[in-house]
Design a protein around this nucleic acid. Structure first.
Lengths: 212, 212
DNA sequence: CATTACATTGACCGACCGGTCAGTCAGTGC
DNA sequence: GCACTGACTGACCGGTCGGTCAATGTAATG
């Protein structure tokens, strides 16, 4: 729990040019990527002059980093309910499978932004942000899986990190490929993410082989 | 007819400016994406003038499409050995799991190029190419799974398209995230793709629950 | 040799890029 | 009234972008 910003998100919602710039930048960057978005376009959508954008953010990269930081901090708070011990391990994993994909789909712009960032940059820029927030969620998921494994709720041959990768990867792949998958006649679940999540949990829990 | 060169792909490999341009464009596009690569850079790397690039390709988009077309056609021929009936279904699926990931990792540039294209464009451009080649492999995989299911080698509750999505998605996610995953202390398989493939098959075949 | 066809080139264009700058304006403390 | 500040702007900078074009080289054909 780092520090929670007071109420500025509600005190100056539309009046503050900075927030309008940030919102415009988030939209445009997530739609088209860093290079394809000009500062003129951001300024136009925010309803301010380009010079004013440079007044609030010292460079295009600085603005991009600010957008990414906000996006990451928002996705911080989400994946916290899956640790509760009240239900059975199987039920909790099913819950996680559904809620994780739902949270990815909830703010498509943020997901696309982070995903794009992980792909685009070779050397530097916001990679650390994404790695940090992604790594945090990943480690938390691995911990939960490992503790479940110690209680015998998970086969001991399973690598928890492998399972975590599979859980996250299945959702990420669904998110980024659903527009393509949608056109395949064999695929029936693109319009029903919760069904995808359910089938995913089913396969992971029981495998694909017939019961002997 | 003093000149008789039937196999032009081998007769003029490096002399032909067109091929040098295509190779340079493939490298640069896969490294940095469409927008971030200038025609000057492509011309420089190919060792020709920029005007000559426009002589052989009518626009930047045209060159990009040509590169994508070649990339897709190359990946066409690969995923064909998994249909052979000689081995058991389990063995074939294990084989596929390994060989599919290996083929993705084999030509990283092509994989990155296609992946980037699927992410970048909203409306048009090479999406059809990727959909076509991807859809072909996907349909083939689904067919094989479905036939195995009819023979009782696969639980009848399993959706073949879902399983295919999982198989492909796990590999794609591994490919695109391994640079990030590599820094996570829990992850031990980033340097050993064949171990990742083996664990994937293990989990999919038998599930993660302890045997009753 | 003249002609034809094409590969190749440097010079060049208008548009737009990220970024700067001098200056306007509203608000605030004294 | 005055000084000061920060938000804000239009005009502008050097540079790069995709793309064009007239001219040159070069080899084959007549």
């Amino acid at each position: 729990m780092p520090l929670a910003e007071p109420t500025e998100t509600l005190s100056t919602p539309a009046t503050d040019a900075t927030e309008r710039i940030l919102a415009a930048a988030k939209d445009l960057f997530s739609e088209s990527g860093f290079d394809a978005v000009s500062m003129n376009a951001i300024a136009d959508r925010a309803g301010v002059s380009k010079a004013n954008v440079f007044h609030h953010f010292k460079s295009k990269n600085d603005l991009y980093l600010a957008v990414l930081k906000i996006a990451c901090s928002k996705s911080h708070a989400q994946i916290d309910q899956l640790g509760s011990d009240k239900d059975s391990f199987v039920a909790r994993l099913r819950d996680y499978s559904v809620s994780h994909l739902a949270s990815i789909l909830q703010d498509e712009k943020i997901s696309r932004l982070i995903q794009r960032d992980l792909l685009e940059n070779g050397p530097q820029r916001g990679k650390e942000f994404a790695e940090q927030v992604f790594g945090q969620n990943f480690a938390r998921l691995v911990d939960i899986l490992r503790s479940g494994q110690k209680k015998g709720e998970l086969r001991k041959e399973i690598d928890p990190a492998m399972l975590a990768t599979l859980l996250i990867g299945a959702d990420v792949f669904f998110f980024q490929s659903r527009e393509v998958l949608r056109h395949f006649p064999d695929v029936s679940f693109t319009a029903a993410p919760e069904r995808y999540s359910a089938m995913l949990a089913e396969i992971l829990l029981h495998g694909i082989l017939p019961k002997p």
